[in-house]
Amino acid sequence: MSILSSVAGQFFLKAGALRLGKATPTNALSHIFNIATTPELIAGLMCYGLGAIAYILLLTRVKLSIAGPSIALVYIFTVLMGYFFFKEAIPPTRVVGLGFIIGGVLLVMWQR
């Protein structure tokens, strides 16, 4: 639940950022104020809050040395979300990096 909430938060934050438009030195302050009135950004922050609550509850049941690295799976889902929803490219080097993340998480979670 924590991972899914974080991924949803990333999605809404990106959608809200696109709605705000590109930040520049001249409009940065107004962008900061507009965050409070952009529904996608509010939804993204709420998702992050729910993710944090879910993570705290997870930590009552699972070792931190397992739960912490497992959160790295958010990277996998956000890259895929960027590709499918925001038409972002996934270069070969990123695919290799994602493979290392998946392999690392599997090694950390592996129990004999």
Rank of each mutant, 00 (worst) to 15 (best):
T38G: 11
T38Y: 05
P39N: 11
P39S: 10
L41K: 00
L41I: 15
A43G: 00
A43S: 07
A43T: 01
G44R: 08
L45M: 09
L45Y: 11
M46V: 14
C47Y: 04
Y48S: 13
Y48G: 14
Y48F: 15
Y48A: 13
G49M: 13
L50H: 00
L50I: 13
L50N: 03
L50Q: 02
G51L: 05
G51H: 04
G51Q: 06
G51A: 12
A52P: 05
A52M: 14
A52S: 12
A52N: 13
I53G: 08
I53P: 04
I53Q: 04
A54E: 12
A54V: 01
A54T: 02
I56L: 15
I56M: 14
I56Y: 14
L59H: 06
L59N: 09
L59Y: 05
T60L: 11
T60S: 13
T60P: 02
R61G: 00
R61I: 08
K63I: 01
K63P: 02
L64T: 08
S65T: 09
S65D: 07
I66M: 11
I66Y: 07
I66Q: 11
I66D: 05
A67G: 03
A67D: 09
A67S: 12
P69K: 00
P69Y: 02
P69G: 06
S70W: 04
S70K: 00
A72I: 00
A72K: 06
A72R: 07
A72P: 02
L73D: 07
L73C: 10
L73H: 05
L73V: 05
V74T: 15
V74C: 10
V74Q: 14
V74R: 08
V74W: 09
Y75A: 11
Y75K: 07
Y75P: 03
Y75H: 13
I76H: 08
I76Y: 10
I76G: 09
F77P: 10
T78E: 04
V79W: 01
V79N: 10
L80G: 13
L80R: 09
L80E: 10
L80T: 08
M81L: 15
G82I: 00
G82S: 02
G82V: 01
Y83K: 06
Y83R: 08
Y83L: 13
F85Q: 02
F86L: 08
F86S: 10
F86V: 08
E88D: 15
E88C: 04
A89V: 08
A89N: 12
I90A: 06
I90F: 01
I90V: 15
P91D: 04
P91E: 03
P91W: 00
P91Q: 01
P92Y: 08
P92K: 07
T93D: 06
T93I: 14
V95Y: 09
V95H: 07
V96I: 15
V96N: 11
G97M: 11
L98H: 07
G99R: 09
G99P: 11
F100A: 12
I101F: 08
I102A: 13
G103N: 05
G103L: 15
G103R: 03
G104E: 02
G104W: 00
G104C: 02
V105R: 02
V105T: 03
L106M: 15
L107G: 08
L107R: 06
L107W: 11
V108E: 09
V108N: 06
M109Y: 05
M109K: 10
M109V: 11
M109A: 12
W110I: 09
R112H: 09
R112L: 10
